[in-house]
Design a protein around this nucleic acid. Structure first.
Lengths: 338, 338
DNA sequence: TTGTATGCGTTATCAG
DNA sequence: CTGATAACGCATACAA
């Protein structure tokens, strides 16, 4: 319609023969606006024929609201984040906002990426891990932008929402115990990981509860990757006496763990039961299908943007999502064979 | 430092005792600027002590550049997109830009999400599938914003970058043929999918090349999901005579296909060979480990933002990424047993 | 019922 | 070498 330029409020005003402010108020459906129906008609028509779209930058500058939230994740390849994003996007949509996500670690650091977002591009930022340096966090705090840690926390971070990882671990161990297992190992997450340490402590607590003193020889650390799980499980299977069951802290590691058992000729679940945290569509199709603890990841994402919109940046947030957790029984767990 | 307000250019100017424009030019390292070293020193000091950060909205309004690109994907759960995003983020970072991605399909449509981005929030938009209605595309075209279809195309879309899906299919079939297979089936992608039809046609061409007339009974359609693959493979295994090998259009389906074979008591690769398109970290850990064709997904993402920055929105783009493709040999393929 | 005026925080084009 | 000034496109209090 227009040759090359973007159509602006002034264009529409000229076309409709009214003032810019009228157009603005019509578009924002200003409640305190009495307008003659025919005029509104004319305005709407002009908007449509010219294809007017309000400029986001101008609007943001004026209102100090971008109607956009950011979500930072460490790695798109980890399917766990897919669920979190889903919930966060839904919650944003409910508020007529966009949720954009990024993992942009330039030169190994998340900082450049976060800096860009902190310039007022988003109304709030969710950080689902991946921020190493606490200097990055400090910079964030300076930026007067609401932010929130999702699914982890840092010693000096006062705003975070997590899941009940202890509870999930307890659920898994409980299940194995009820099947009759006594030597239950833990394939734990990596060293720095917050979820990993909570799941590990949940494991220890549950073991103690059932009169089993925590045995360091039964705990092996691994990255939250298939490769990490493979290596850790291989190591675990070399130890004697071998555990009859393993609680794996993460579903990605579990895939590698499954493979390691297969590789070592250990039959799952006959000789070894495996249960992992996080249920994924994938789990059902593994061989054997993986028994998991389903956690409310989507709810976590949803709560994240909710908290971003409702709390002001300075008040502490320390919440544990209390969505439903569920043990999803499949083929990888069974009573010990002997 | 400051009580509640964001610190602006004017604040810094006052603090340094110079004009706003000076600060601006220092920050943007304006080449045509002669400034006394001591003044520059003072400016830089003020910027630092006040913690000044330029406001993105104001800057965007003024310069008409947001230094942000958008990437729209249909589904975060599909790990294929993780690789595309990786490449796109890297390319954006090279240009000191942010890449934000979203799948925000509200109420089944991508339109609300795309509308929001089209308001000048991003300098360009990459669409990696998921846009159903061609009306959405039309709206996009109106918006005078550079955009590009990634890994697919539409009849009325003149700007797209794809991969060599025919070539990948040929590679897979070639491999199976060279192992001695004759009854080679194709577990194809869903009906509307662009990549699916290219891979299917590549399959047919390769079959013809080796003197095998395409047999419709050897082709089954499935969603690009584990569940889809499971169902399709189950159906395929019910047909007689059974194929000795299957070329699966997508790695997610392949996981389901593997499970279906297991469920039907068909040994892979002894009784049935399986090769799939797209290599993922996961493939190596499946049981049996999956033979795949690795495609340059990361390169695809990279080329996407490159094209966004270099071509103007009106010139057609029809490119096929010519990055390296590779057959990754693992355990799921072998010569036919009889 | 509609129009006017002002400012949001930058950048860019001028003067001085 | 540096300062004033005018946009960028929109929203809003206020005047008419």
């Amino acid at each position: 319609m227009k040759p090359g330029k973007r159509v602006t409020l002034a264009d529409v005003a000229a076309h409709a023969g009214v003032d810019r402010s009228v157009i603005s108020r019509v578009m924002n459906s200003d409640p305190g606006l009495n307008i003659r129906p025919e005029t509104r008609e004319r305005v709407l028509a002009s908007v449509k024929t010219l294809g007017y779209r309000p400029n986001a930058a101008a609007r943001t500058l004026r209102t100090r609201q971008s109607r956009t939230f950011g979500l930072f994740i460490p790695d798109y390849a980890n399917p766990v984040y897919a669920e979190i994003i889903k919930g966060a996007e839904a919650a944003a949509a409910d508020r007529e906002c966009v949720l954009v996500t990024g993992s942009g670690r330039v030169a190994g650091s998340a900082k450049p990426y976060l800096d860009l977002l902190a310039d007022g591009r988003v109304d709030g930022l969710l950080l689902a891990g991946g921020v190493r340096a606490s200097a990055t966090l400090a910079a964030l705090r300076e930026s007067r932008m609401p932010w929130l840690l999702l699914n982890w926390s840092m010693t000096d971070a006062t705003r975070h929402i997590v899941l009940d990882d202890e509870g999930a671990a307890a659920m898994a161990v409980e299940h194995l115990v009820s099947l009759g297992h006594r030597r239950i190992a833990h394939l734990a997450g990596p060293d720095g990981s917050d979820t990993a340490s909570r799941r590990a402590s949940g494991y220890r607590a549950a073991m103690r509860l059932h009169g089993r003193a925590p045995d360091p020889a039964l705990v092996v650390r691994a990255d939250y990757t298939a490769d990490g799980g493979f290596q850790a499980m291989t190591e675990l299977l070399g130890r004697t006496p071998r555990p009859t069951a393993v609680f794996v802290a993460n579903v990605a590691s579990a895939i590698g763990a499954l493979r390691a058992a297969y590789r070592c000729g250990v039959a799952v679940p006959r000789e070894l039961s495996i249960v992992a945290v996080h249920d994924l569509p994938l789990a059902e199709y593994l061989i054997p299908a993986l028994t998991t603890v389903r956690m409310p990841l989507e709810e976590l994402g949803r709560r994240g943007v909710e908290a971003l919109t409702t709390t002001d940046p300075d008040t502490p947030v320390a919440e544990t999502v209390d969505g439903p957790m569920e043990l999803v029984l499949r083929e990888s767990t069974a009573p010990p064979s002997a």
